[in-house]
């Protein structure tokens, strides 16, 4: 099949093969000898790895929680407001709200790093006197907020897409039936966008467990202070390439990647069997 060949070949060689090979490598040592579960034993048994791993995993779940609690509801709220009929200038807002999403993480990271820097004093003017990115207590929430700020455009535009696809007369029918704005949302709009909520949640989950760039950019690979902003992505990178004093190990890197693979797989399975089975998508 000439039509299928290019896509299948490139996908298989540069995506499927590396993923499988990566899994394989997690069972071998750096010299290519079969090592059974040694790498996994090291990861979970050796405190230098295990502590960092559990920390990173915990942080990553916090990072995800921030996105679920803030990014997606805010995205939904903005999308709902953007689809309110009879208000002018909505397209301008839509463009502006999405703008941060188009900026690269490097830029976003740096912009916020400068703005939050105690040296500049912008935060002081705004009444914040802790170095938000400097203290272990605040660094992860702050980075999460920055990430939310950047990515809120994605859930917004996704929700927006389903919202504008809901026929206007459904909404009108419910208004004639006696529903106020809140009831229309609760009884009509929300049930109809529920499938999209699931899709956005799983995309957020995958995205968050894949996150790296922002933390790397703002806090470097050591994800300071004192690993307080370390998440799976930075942990993976350090394990693979090494950082400040430790040497990297491809085999251990592959092991971490395999565990991340498993974590993401669990999320996807929960989504597919716990959610998708129960939530029906309606043709509108």
């Amino acid at each position: 099949m000439v039509f299928l060949a290019p896509a299948t070949v490139i996908y298989s060689v540069f995506m499927v093969y590396p993923l499988l090979d990566s899994l394989r490598r997690s069972f071998f040592d750096d010299d290519g000898n079969f090592a059974g579960l040694d790498n996994y034993n090291t990861l979970f048994g050796n405190p230098t790895f295990a502590d960092r791993f559990w920390d990173a995993l915990g942080h990553n779940f916090q990072f995800f929680a921030f996105h679920m609690v803030l990014q997606n509801p805010i995205g939904l709220l903005l999308a709902v407001l953007l689809t309110v009929q009879s208000v002018r200038g909505l397209n301008i807002y839509r463009t502006i709200v999405f703008l941060p999403t188009t900026l690269s993480v490097v830029i976003v990271g740096f912009v916020w790093r400068l703005i939050l820097s105690p040296i500049w004093g912008v935060t002081e003017t705004l009444g914040i006197d802790t170095p938000l990115l400097g203290e272990s207590r605040t660094v992860l929430p702050t980075l999460s907020l920055i990430s939310v700020w950047q990515w809120v455009g994605i859930p917004m535009i996704f929700f927006y897409a389903v919202l504008i696809a809901i026929p206007k007369d459904l909404i009108e029918a419910s208004r004639v039936d006696g529903a106020g704005s809140w009831q229309v949302f609760r009884d009509i709009t929300f049930p109809l966008i529920l499938p999209m909520l699931g899709i956005i949640s799983i995309l957020t989950y995958i995205g968050n467990f894949n996150a790296f760039d922002l933390i790397y950019q703002v806090k470097g690979v050591v994800a300071g202070p004192d690993f307080a902003s370390d998440i799976m992505g930075t942990f993976f990178y350090r394990t693979f390439f090494g950082a400040s004093g430790t040497t990297g190990s491809p085999a251990m890197g592959a092991t971490v990647a395999s565990v991340m693979f498993l974590i993401i797989l669990v999320g996807v399975l929960i989504y597919m069997f716990g959610w998708q089975r129960r939530v029906t998508t309606y043709e509108l």
Binding site: P167, D169, L170, E172, A173, S174, R175, V176, D177, G178, A179, G180, D187, I188, P191, L192, T280, Y282, E283, L284
Partner: peptide
Amino acid sequence: ESPRERDIAMVFQNYALYPH
């Protein structure tokens, strides 16, 4: 008055039934 206050029922061309 809003539609709910007018106490009027409407039948739409595409029926506008709530699919869920």
